[in-house]
Simulated scan of single mutants.
Amino acid sequence: ADADRGLERLVEWAKKRSRPTVIAFFGDHLPPLGPVYVETGFLKDNVAPRKEASPEAALEHHETPLVIWSNRTGPAEDMGAVSPAFLPYHILKTAGISHPYYTGFLGEMRERYRVVDRNLLLTPAGEATPDWARQKEIDPAIRDFRLLQYDMMFGKRRAAPDFFPETVEKVVAHTS
């Protein structure tokens, strides 16, 4: 209830702004409610398992509310389940910003998969691939997605010139 009221105040404030404003509001996990999940039969343990018995159970236990709202266009509609990795794509799309590099790549991935989790891939049509990372062959697009994420977060950022050219230009300008 407090989060709902806080979001309402934030939206009311943003409605009055002349500057274009986008708000993304989401949870990253179910709220900690102690033993209530077990007592009501919703879960077997106090926390949801990482590997679920079915895609439906994975969505029921891991999907959290997401609102993306713009003071120009209102709420983003019909997003369905969204993996956190796709948030930049949805936020920029709501803002009316087209970025042909990384967010363009994310848009292409979003057309193929609405959920990319280490234990589950889920297509927009609801087709599930559980334990996909343990299979001998995986979709080359997912392989590229994983490699790009690893490179940018932990690697030597070799993909930066192709996917984030504006950051490379800033680095070159600062080192010259």
Results as ranks from 00 to 15, higher is better:
residue 12 E to V: 01
residue 12 E to P: 00
residue 16 K to D: 11
residue 16 K to T: 13
residue 16 K to A: 15
residue 20 P to V: 00
residue 20 P to K: 04
residue 21 T to E: 14
residue 22 V to M: 05
residue 24 A to V: 08
residue 25 F to M: 10
residue 25 F to I: 00
residue 26 F to I: 13
residue 27 G to Q: 00
residue 28 D to M: 10
residue 29 H to Q: 15
residue 31 P to M: 09
residue 31 P to S: 07
residue 32 P to T: 06
residue 32 P to M: 13
residue 33 L to C: 07
residue 33 L to E: 11
residue 36 V to I: 15
residue 36 V to R: 13
residue 37 Y to D: 02
residue 42 F to W: 14
residue 43 L to H: 09
residue 44 K to Q: 09
residue 44 K to A: 09
residue 44 K to H: 12
residue 45 D to R: 14
residue 45 D to E: 15
residue 45 D to Y: 05
residue 45 D to K: 15
residue 46 N to I: 06
residue 47 V to Y: 05
residue 47 V to H: 06
residue 47 V to E: 11
residue 47 V to I: 11
residue 48 A to W: 03
residue 49 P to Q: 00
residue 49 P to Y: 01
residue 50 R to Q: 07
residue 51 K to G: 11
residue 52 E to Q: 15
residue 52 E to P: 02
residue 52 E to V: 03
residue 53 A to I: 05
residue 53 A to C: 01
residue 55 P to C: 02
residue 56 E to Y: 13
residue 56 E to C: 10
residue 57 A to K: 02
residue 57 A to R: 14
residue 57 A to S: 02
residue 57 A to G: 01
residue 58 A to Y: 15
residue 59 L to K: 01
residue 61 H to G: 08
residue 61 H to V: 03
residue 62 H to S: 11
residue 63 E to S: 02
residue 63 E to P: 01
residue 63 E to C: 05
residue 64 T to S: 15
residue 66 L to K: 12
residue 68 I to R: 03
residue 68 I to M: 00
residue 69 W to E: 04
residue 69 W to A: 08
residue 70 S to R: 03
residue 71 N to W: 11
residue 71 N to F: 10
residue 72 R to T: 12
residue 75 P to V: 09
residue 75 P to I: 02
residue 75 P to N: 10
residue 76 A to Y: 05
residue 77 E to A: 14
residue 77 E to W: 13
residue 79 M to K: 12
residue 80 G to I: 04
residue 80 G to S: 07
residue 80 G to M: 08
residue 82 V to C: 06
residue 83 S to N: 13
residue 83 S to F: 11
residue 86 F to W: 10
residue 87 L to Q: 07
residue 88 P to Q: 04
residue 89 Y to C: 00
residue 90 H to E: 03
residue 91 I to Q: 01
residue 91 I to F: 11
residue 92 L to D: 00
residue 94 T to P: 04
residue 94 T to Q: 09
residue 94 T to M: 01
residue 96 G to W: 00
residue 99 H to P: 04
residue 101 Y to W: 10
residue 102 Y to A: 03
residue 102 Y to M: 03
residue 103 T to Y: 01
residue 104 G to T: 03
residue 105 F to T: 02
residue 105 F to C: 09
residue 105 F to P: 05
residue 106 L to P: 02
residue 107 G to L: 09
residue 108 E to N: 12
residue 108 E to G: 13
residue 110 R to K: 12
residue 112 R to K: 15
residue 112 R to G: 04
residue 114 R to M: 10
residue 114 R to C: 13
residue 115 V to G: 07
residue 116 V to A: 02
residue 117 D to L: 10
residue 118 R to Y: 12
residue 119 N to F: 07
residue 121 L to D: 05
residue 121 L to W: 02
residue 122 L to M: 10
residue 122 L to V: 11
residue 125 A to K: 14
residue 127 E to W: 06
residue 128 A to L: 02
residue 130 P to L: 06
residue 131 D to P: 01
residue 133 A to Q: 13
residue 136 K to C: 14
residue 139 D to R: 00
residue 139 D to T: 09
residue 141 A to H: 05
residue 142 I to C: 06
residue 143 R to W: 11
residue 143 R to I: 09
residue 145 F to A: 09
residue 145 F to R: 05
residue 145 F to G: 00
residue 146 R to V: 15
residue 147 L to W: 15
residue 148 L to T: 12
residue 148 L to Q: 01
residue 149 Q to H: 15
residue 149 Q to I: 13
residue 150 Y to V: 03
residue 152 M to A: 14
residue 152 M to D: 06
residue 153 M to N: 04
residue 153 M to K: 07
residue 154 F to P: 03
residue 155 G to F: 00
residue 156 K to C: 01
residue 157 R to K: 11
residue 158 R to V: 05
